[in-house]
Amino acid sequence: MQDLLDDLRRWRRAGTRVALARVVDVDGSAPRPAGAAMAVSEHGEVAGSVSGGCVEGAVVTTALEVLESGERRVVTFGYSDDEAFAVGLTCGGTVHVFVEPFDW
């Protein structure tokens, strides 16, 4: 999330509520390693990325939900037997993304 520090500061100073999504773990071939991060403002503005573009849309949805509920959680994207994983990575890997309000 090092490359997001400027954006996070700008939003913090403006009093904008922001959710932060960070890749915490990857299995198999994944485009971005742990530490890749993306921030989503309450207005839907996006900075950074967590994959090669495959799952960013779903992360925005989760981020806005987390801003609404205040509930931090890990979401997983990738190939799985579980039908619930509708959004996947074309590379066949799995990414685990921790999403939380940026309130710290």
Binding site: Q2, L5, L8, R9, R12, F102, W104
Partner: peptide, 10 residues
């Protein structure tokens, strides 16, 4: 804030 301490260190 903790994030401000982080930013200062970076």
């Amino acid at each position: 804030l903790l994030s401000e301490d982080l930013e200062a260190a970076v």
